[in-house]
């Protein structure tokens, strides 16, 4: 695996994504999702909400990197907060 140039941070990042996907799969088997319409312009399933949360998190982080010089913890907190809002009311 040396050719993939792993670092501790990226390994943790992908492990977290992997764990989220496994957790969502188990949750889907135990309690299948239903499409719901919230404040988002489309009706979404749990998987849609996860995708929207992840892609939003990526853009929030990029926005912070492009415009602000603060540490990325702020972007991470905003992303988590936004994801919670999407999952609860999205």
């Amino acid at each position: 695996m040396n050719w993939m140039a792993w670092t501790g941070v990226t390994a943790t990042f992908f492990s977290v994504i992997g764990c989220i996907l496994i957790f969502m799969t188990i949750l889907e088997i135990k309690s299948p999702t239903l499409e719901k319409k919230g404040f988002l312009p489309i009706a979404t399933t749990r998987g849609d909400k996860l995708f929207i949360s992840l892609i939003s998190a990526a853009y929030i982080h990029l926005g912070f990197l492009a415009l602000v010089d603060t540490v990325l913890w702020v972007a991470l907190c905003i992303s988590i907060l936004w994801s919670a809002v999407v999952f609860r009311w999205g």
Binding site: W3, M4, A5, W6, T7, V9, T10, F13, F14
Partner: peptide, 18 residues
């Protein structure tokens, strides 16, 4: 998936050689 993971790994490093 593996190529994208590799690109993510490269993107946080300054790579001089293998």
């Amino acid at each position: 998936i593996v190529p994208i993971m590799t690109v993510v790994n490269y993107s946080v490093q300054d790579i001089f050689d293998q």
